[in-house]
Computed example of a mutant assay.
Amino acid sequence: MFDHIQIKVKDLKSSKRFYTAALAPLGFTVQYEGGGAVGFGPKGAPALWLGEGDSRGSVHIAFAAKDRAAVKAFHAAAVPAGGKDNGAPGLRPDYHANYYAAFVKDPDGNNVEAVCHKEQ
């Protein structure tokens, strides 16, 4: 649906460490780094950009996970990398019967989610 998104972060180094760990289980890696910015995504297609600067408020970003194991791995990697648990991996039936997600606050307070919509 979108080509890319950029969020401002206070400390690019700590945010890069967090997102590198959190996004690895989802198949996203650093694709660009320079000029005060870091771009993450699949090979050759950075879609999440971090730019050092003042945030204008928190955002919610949800990343698609290929399966429930990837959602669990995202959460397990994100918390020790500087994230704060904001919802352990599990079903969210209020959204729909197969909505399996985990939520973590990044170092700037953004709500980062990994979600899988498959039955198992």
Results as ranks from 00 to 15, higher is better:
residue 1 M to W: 10
residue 2 F to E: 08
residue 2 F to I: 13
residue 2 F to S: 07
residue 3 D to W: 14
residue 4 H to F: 11
residue 4 H to Q: 14
residue 5 I to C: 03
residue 5 I to R: 00
residue 9 V to C: 04
residue 9 V to K: 01
residue 9 V to T: 03
residue 9 V to S: 03
residue 10 K to F: 05
residue 10 K to A: 13
residue 12 L to S: 10
residue 13 K to D: 13
residue 15 S to T: 07
residue 15 S to M: 08
residue 15 S to H: 03
residue 15 S to L: 08
residue 16 K to V: 14
residue 16 K to M: 13
residue 17 R to E: 01
residue 17 R to K: 03
residue 18 F to I: 07
residue 19 Y to D: 05
residue 22 A to L: 08
residue 22 A to K: 03
residue 23 L to Y: 03
residue 24 A to I: 01
residue 25 P to G: 14
residue 26 L to I: 11
residue 26 L to R: 08
residue 26 L to E: 12
residue 27 G to H: 03
residue 27 G to R: 04
residue 28 F to W: 12
residue 28 F to M: 10
residue 29 T to A: 12
residue 30 V to H: 02
residue 30 V to K: 01
residue 31 Q to E: 15
residue 31 Q to Y: 07
residue 32 Y to W: 08
residue 32 Y to A: 09
residue 33 E to M: 02
residue 33 E to I: 04
residue 34 G to Q: 14
residue 34 G to S: 06
residue 35 G to K: 08
residue 35 G to E: 09
residue 36 G to I: 06
residue 37 A to S: 07
residue 39 G to V: 05
residue 39 G to A: 11
residue 40 F to Y: 04
residue 41 G to I: 01
residue 41 G to F: 02
residue 44 G to P: 14
residue 45 A to K: 15
residue 45 A to R: 15
residue 45 A to W: 03
residue 46 P to R: 02
residue 47 A to Y: 01
residue 47 A to M: 12
residue 48 L to K: 01
residue 49 W to P: 01
residue 49 W to Y: 15
residue 49 W to K: 10
residue 50 L to A: 02
residue 53 G to Q: 00
residue 54 D to Y: 10
residue 58 S to A: 00
residue 58 S to G: 00
residue 60 H to M: 06
residue 61 I to A: 04
residue 62 A to W: 10
residue 63 F to W: 05
residue 63 F to A: 08
residue 63 F to H: 09
residue 63 F to Q: 07
residue 64 A to N: 11
residue 64 A to C: 13
residue 66 K to M: 09
residue 67 D to Q: 08
residue 67 D to A: 07
residue 68 R to E: 04
residue 68 R to W: 07
residue 69 A to N: 01
residue 69 A to M: 00
residue 71 V to N: 02
residue 72 K to G: 11
residue 73 A to D: 15
residue 73 A to N: 14
residue 74 F to Y: 13
residue 75 H to M: 06
residue 75 H to R: 07
residue 76 A to F: 00
residue 79 V to T: 10
residue 80 P to C: 06
residue 80 P to N: 04
residue 81 A to W: 09
residue 82 G to K: 09
residue 82 G to M: 12
residue 84 K to H: 12
residue 85 D to C: 08
residue 85 D to K: 06
residue 88 A to K: 13
residue 89 P to W: 05
residue 89 P to D: 10
residue 89 P to I: 06
residue 91 L to F: 10
residue 92 R to A: 15
residue 92 R to C: 12
residue 93 P to E: 13
residue 95 Y to N: 01
residue 95 Y to M: 05
residue 95 Y to H: 02
residue 97 A to M: 04
residue 97 A to T: 04
residue 100 Y to C: 07
residue 100 Y to T: 05
residue 101 A to V: 02
residue 102 A to P: 05
residue 102 A to F: 09
residue 103 F to M: 13
residue 103 F to G: 11
residue 104 V to T: 15
residue 105 K to A: 02
residue 107 P to M: 11
residue 107 P to S: 04
residue 108 D to A: 06
residue 108 D to P: 11
residue 109 G to W: 01
residue 109 G to N: 03
residue 109 G to Y: 01
residue 110 N to Y: 15
residue 111 N to Q: 05
residue 111 N to Y: 05
residue 112 V to I: 11
residue 115 V to E: 07
residue 115 V to M: 10
residue 116 C to P: 10
residue 117 H to P: 14
residue 117 H to D: 09
residue 118 K to M: 09
residue 119 E to H: 08
residue 119 E to K: 13
